[in-house]
Design a protein around this nucleic acid. Structure first.
Lengths: 214, 214
DNA sequence: TGTACATCAGTGAACGCGCGTTCACTGATGTAC
DNA sequence: TGTACATCAGTGAACGCGCGTTCACTGATGTAC
């Protein structure tokens, strides 16, 4: 994935500037937050004049939106892989999904920040809304599957269930996972906190019937 | 100089510049997000030269941290008022607490952003950590009260319970409540989403036993 | 196969801008006597 | 009560900086014939 790093100076034409700028943006966001990113510095990191990025992106928001789109795509893939179509067993797969959510926030803080901590209007960048929807769809599908195993009376709307789990995961990720100095300490790991929360939630629905999983 | 607010120009000395700068910061954060705030613009809004703020704040982070401290204080008050010491009845009071959480995020988006969407290190500003802790303590105390009413076997650690509710509330607030164009639409109100989530959660503990509250 | 030409992608210089920050200053306010 | 003086709080000019953005340009690449 690194793409362009070793001494393959290609002379006048960079050859892969678009990708190099997206990489640079990730690096800068990781180091200084989404607000610390500038087009000029990304160009410098890519070894290119400050005017060059304008051949590929309209402005900084356009570039960050593209980072967010790619982040959502990776995110959706990671969630789908963890859910694994409900195998080997829906409740366990659902817990794996939660762990994958936090793992992404932990391992890809720059993507996560571009996806959730910027104020770019989804309408202005067409693919963005769709990419976010694809990630959410994994959660919604998983919720539907879990819900289908319940007696009709105690069956909650799967969409609501997905929103609850997403909100809980995002809340834990943004309060406790990020490596920033401003985050506060937890008496347990974020993963354990989320898993306990999800288990209690499912328990109230009659799933995961009360056992404390080891 | 457009004059300050109502003709109370006090001449050379502003008289209340510190407060005026904090107000200006709130206004700017509300309009452009925490990243859009600058000392120079706050000075302009307060009708004062760009050097004046340095008599009161070391730099922009120092000012924003002070906004965050005041935000946490207001937030703690609002939560405590809603919880009302568990009256008239703990579960209902707990739901009121959740509504108060979202109401604050909705009505004071600038405070909320200063509190949760900036990257100021809590250690660098001494009062900040303490102010945040005071707000969280309301939630923790409420959780302790609820937990105390449970049979010892099914009693979860109150701290964990408070962290779950806080995370769920914060997740819903940051994903769905803010007035930004980037937020996505919900098929229900954020308040209803949170209330349903809290009820299901409490239900799993044996509280709020399964009834759908009107 | 070679050449002329079109298009593409990056250059480098320049500009205006707003910001952070410093400095010696000065008007206003408070206080000792 | 008046006056001298100290302290406080804001001024205004200045600086260096990095950013966004533009422009005519030019080297590199692709293609028609």
């Amino acid at each position: 994935m690194s793409g362009t790093h070793q001494g393959e100076r290609r002379g006048y034409h960079h050859g892969n500037l678009r990708e190099a700028l997206l990489d640079a943006a990730l690096e800068l966001i990781a180091a200084k937050g989404p607000a610390g990113f500038t087009i000029a510095e990304a160009a410098r990191l890519a070894g290119v004049s400050p005017a060059a990025p304008y051949r590929h992106f309209r402005d900084a928001d356009d570039l960050i939106a593209e980072v967010a789109v790619r982040g959502f795509t990776k995110f959706a893939d990671a969630l789908a892989h963890a859910w694994n179509d409900g195998r080997p067993e829906p409740v366990r797969a659902f817990e794996a999904l939660g762990r994958a959510y936090l793992a992404f926030a932990r391992q890809e803080p720059a993507f996560y920040a571009a996806m959730f901590e910027t104020r770019i209007a989804a309408e202005s960048h067409p693919g963005l809304q769709a990419a976010g929807d694809r990630a959410f769809a994994v959660l919604r599908d998983a919720s539907e599957r879990l819900s289908a195993g319940l007696p009709r009376a105690s069956r909650p709307p799967p969409l609501m269930m997905a929103l609850h789990i997403w909100s809980l995961s995002h809340g834990i990720a943004s309060l406790f996972v990020r490596g920033d100095p401003s985050r506060r300490k937890l008496p347990m790991s974020a993963e354990d906190l989320l898993e306990a929360g999800v288990l209690l939630y499912l328990q109230s629905l009659g799933l995961a019937g009360g056992h404390q999983s080891p």
